[in-house]
């Protein structure tokens, strides 16, 4: 391994060379994934950024002209966009919060030994696995429908009037389906948190005479915090991008067009105005960056002190 010739490099140089080679060897397996990800995710983003400063209609083809920030100023005065932005915020926040709260409740229910525990958990995670378009269609046509929907059948059974939910309350119908699909996800994360809680701590609380309520608020909830944060973070990232449910449930009906759907309408979905649509999408990115900065902070808190 080492040649003991007189003009051999010094030990220090040898060690340095070895460490360098080691560092290169460690980087190598990372590169394909890293390069691929940079190519596919960063280039389109930069192109979007560029388009957003231009006026450009793809069909019928029009020349691309530089317009500076006018797309952005237009966006803020465009009442349709403002409405879409509000819808995005309301839908994301309400569906994330509701599914976290419900998910916590369900997780607490499942964090007990009872007959059929695993089976019940399996039933509850099912909605998360359902294809979003299918979830939207099933709820719209078979749960919410005034004519054949199960919910309306129940309402009528107790003497209330049937409601065509998806067209009367488009935004909240979508939120309901999102909550149905995401509560299981939140439940799983929180359940993992509950089960990671050392039993000895709970026993100590019991010995100290804490009531179940005090134990929950003063011990369990603080312990769950990172799990709740992770749930909120992952949920927000996905739910701000909701598209499928809107297409199949309301087609963007009143109060249910969020920004992604709006961008689609203005571009590939028929408007073909790629310039202004890009500006709208960049605004979503900026909004997401707010969530992401918060999110990265959470994640770095999680990774802190962890050795690879």
């Amino acid at each position: 391994m080492t040649a003991a010739t007189s003009n051999a490099p010094s030990r220090e140089e040898q060690v340095k060379a070895l460490q360098k080679r080691e560092a290169r060897r460690r980087r190598l397996p990372l590169l394909p994934a890293l390069i691929f990800t940079i190519l596919i995710t960063q280039i389109p983003f930069v192109m979007s950024l560029y388009y957003s400063f231009t006026d450009w209609t793809v069909t019928p083809p029009s020349p691309r002209t530089w317009t500076g920030i006018s797309n952005y100023t237009d966006a803020f005065t465009n009442s349709f966009f403002r409405e879409a932005a509000v819808t995005s915020i309301v839908m994301t926040v309400s569906s994330v919060l509701l599914s976290v709260i419900l998910g916590t409740g369900v997780a607490l229910l499942l964090d007990r030994k009872f007959f059929g525990q695993g089976f019940v958990r399996t039933l509850i995670i099912t909605p998360f696995l359902v294809m979003p378009v299918v979830a939207g269609l099933v709820w719209k046509n078979q749960m919410f429908s005034a004519a054949f929907g199960v919910i309306n059948w129940l309402l009528e059974a107790v003497g209330l009037e049937a409601v065509e939910f998806a067209s009367k309350y488009p935004r909240w119908s979508i939120v309901a389906v999102l909550v149905w699909q995401w509560t299981p996800f939140m439940m799983l994360i929180i359940l993992a948190g509950l089960q990671g809680q050392p039993a000895s701590v709970l026993e100590a609380a019991k010995v100290d005479g804490a009531t179940p309520r005090a134990t929950f608020f003063q011990i369990t909830l603080p312990h769950l915090r990172p799990y709740l944060e992770l749930g909120v973070l992952l949920g927000s990232i996905y739910l701000i991008q909701v598209f499928d449910h809107i297409v199949v449930m309301t087609g963007g009906g009143p109060g249910s067009t969020n920004v992604p759907y709006f961008v689609n309408q203005r571009s590939i979905g028929g408007g073909w105005r790629f310039g202004s649509a890009s500006a709208f999408s960049i605004l979503v990115v900026i909004a997401t960056i707010f969530i992401a900065t918060f999110g990265l902070r959470v994640l770095s808190g999680l990774l802190e002190g962890e050795e690879p």
Binding site: L34, P44, S48, Q241, V263, N264, V284, L296
Partner: peptide
């Protein structure tokens, strides 16, 4: 066998998930 800045690299991968796909769809279509 972690690279030196493994945390940063992991963050980069995750942060691409923060990028809404709607921001990339038009260039991707083009």
């Amino acid at each position: 066998k972690p690279v030196d800045k493994w945390r940063d690299v992991l963050f980069f991968f995750i942060s691409t998930k923060f990028l809404p796909i709607v921001a990339a769809i038009l260039p991707l279509w083009i």
